[in-house]
Write a protein that binds this DNA or RNA. Structure first.
Lengths: 147, 147
DNA sequence: GGGGGTAGCTTCCTGATGGGAAGTGGGCAC
DNA sequence: GTGCCCACTTCCCATCAGGAAGCTACCCCC
């Protein structure tokens, strides 16, 4: 009781945190969708992926194949792509369709729910594209100031 | 040339990726803002943090202290909070103000740029709160189906 | 009929990364 | 002076993401 006032407070905070999460699952969901690959996958599936992210690239939603997504989201590892797609499917944001052609074709498509999220994700992407120059300028200023 | 067709394609994809990122920094920025702590910090600074995430909690933006943020974003480690705040400051989304009271007081506040991002982040949070039940239902269905 | 090729994963290993907890500095209350 | 508070910073370790290779199921070509 003598030396642990701050530590005790932290322990208490952690206990509160667990209780908080339990009664506030929307926070968990926010954690989930605020993920780089999630936003990129939704973004890709939502706009038609006419290669290159720049400009608008806002064609309209259409189903895409695994390999197509892999190409479009240059840099995603197969593991993370699979993982992200699975979790999005589980959450009901996309559907996974296996067509027994040869070789097997797997397509992913936004559901209505996924489409509604896509709208806000697109806003996020639009923000990034619009304000990128500002951010870059700010970074330069900051870095120069701090030497 | 005989056995590496697929591997070569992957190597090529990686090279493309680097070139892609170099000429498309908005993608990098999107990666950055699509981060769980970033969204939560913006969310906290944007709405007045009248404790509890639920409902709207959409008071209006106001400066907050480090310890206040720490309390509000229950579960954030001090390290990540500091790190996130620094990067947001560097990007010009928030300002950091040190007031030499005693003990020293540090406040963080959204800039105009940060405020504009906050609007879309709020939309994301609103989506999470609105559609959480749907997502939860979908998960249950999915889990039951797959045993 | 078997060697090679393709799509879509899955597994293994390793390096990066996030969390926990303890330490720091400066000033003031006791 | 002893010790505490705020806002960090540092160290250590558990977890996690990425890279590469393997795997399965099928077909084509010779």
């Amino acid at each position: 009781m003598a030396t642990t006032t701050a530590a005790q407070k932290r322990a208490q905070a952690k206990a509160d945190y667990d209780a908080f999460l339990a009664q506030c699952p929307s926070r968990k969901l926010l954690d989930r969708i605020a993920d780089k690959w999630v936003t990129l996958v939704l973004s890709a599936l939502g706009s038609d992926g006419s290669h290159r992210f720049g400009a608008d690239c806002a064609g309209e939603p259409r189903p895409m194949r695994y390999s197509e997504l892999s190409r479009l989201l240059a840099g995603v590892s197969q593991k993370m792509l699979t993982q992200t797609l699975r979790s999005l499917e589980r959450d009901g944001l996309i559907t996974r369709t296996v067509t027994p052609t040869v070789p097997v074709t797997v397509t992913y498509e936004l559901t209505g729910l996924g489409l509604s999220l896509h709208d806000t994700v697109r806003a996020l992407k639009a923000w990034a594209e619009t304000h990128m120059d500002d951010v870059l300028a700010n970074r330069e200023t900051y870095d120069n100031h701090a030497e």
